[in-house]
Design a protein around this nucleic acid. Structure first.
Lengths: 132, 132
DNA sequence: TTGATATATTCCTATATCGGAATATACTTG
DNA sequence: CAAGTATATTCCGATATAGGAATATATCAA
């Protein structure tokens, strides 16, 4: 098989930068028609319609007709799985931040105590490529 | 052009369910070697190595050698852009939750006040396909 | 050194994707 | 109804992907 089901999965839908832009735009205004999006994105109309098609298919956006316009709105509920998944890693950068702060404080304390600076430079070995 | 730069972007890297699994596994243990991942994932070795290659390329995981094993660890920092992006939509489901609760309370109040039920059913027009 | 184990890489193929161009559909206005 | 506008869809081509099989590389053990 080739690539995993792209258009049937939120994670894949938002893997496309343009589609993220669309989502961002729809987060700012309750509703936008396609022409508005075309202008904001600076993409040709079919490209925008296709991206909207993908977002529609996974349910991240919803449409309703208004005359000849189609008004798109965000359906944020469908983004929640992404949030839920990434949320699990929040602790990592929180902790990291905490330990950076901690380390900084420790260093400051040491500086104060010792009144001397030690610059450490360790040589770095490069990961060699295996060649073909 | 075909698809946007896939393996050079965190969003694309985590678009693959298997790669998310790998990330999840590395979040549970500080370090794992490839064999461990192979067993946990139930995928053939080359597949796992390739997925690890992608994650490595975007910096989501880091490796270091230990004998003939390669120990992989998570580099959560690289996941932060995803978190930051999706975070912008948190308010939506928070708000939605709030308004659902609100609506429920309102409805309850109305029920109490009016003591009557009004079932509204609006006819729905189906989106027709254009066919070719 | 030889063999075994752990892991990465290459080659191949089927498939899916994105973009562009052209076209179809639907609604609106004269 | 005809022309125009808004949007979606189809067709095409280039590219990249994921998986499988085979192979390469590196380290370990005897």
């Amino acid at each position: 098989m080739a690539r995993a089901a792209t258009t049937s999965d939120v994670f894949n839908a938002i893997a496309e930068p343009r589609r993220r832009e669309i989502v961002d735009l729809l987060a700012l205004e309750a509703e936008r028609d396609v022409t508005e999006l075309i202008l904001k994105l600076g993409l040709p109309q079919p490209a925008v319609s296709k991206h909207l098609g993908v977002l529609r298919k996974v349910g991240v956006v919803a449409v309703h007709k208004a005359g000849q316009r189609r008004l798109y709105r965000l359906n944020p509920k469908e983004l929640k799985p992404v949030h839920d998944w990434i949320q699990n890693f929040e602790r990592f950068w929180t902790d990291q931040l905490a330990s950076i702060k901690e380390a900084a404080e420790l260093k400051a304390k040491q500086r104060a105590a010792h009144h001397r600076a030690a610059s450490n430079q360790s040589p770095r070995s490069k990961e060699q490529s295996h060649g073909r």
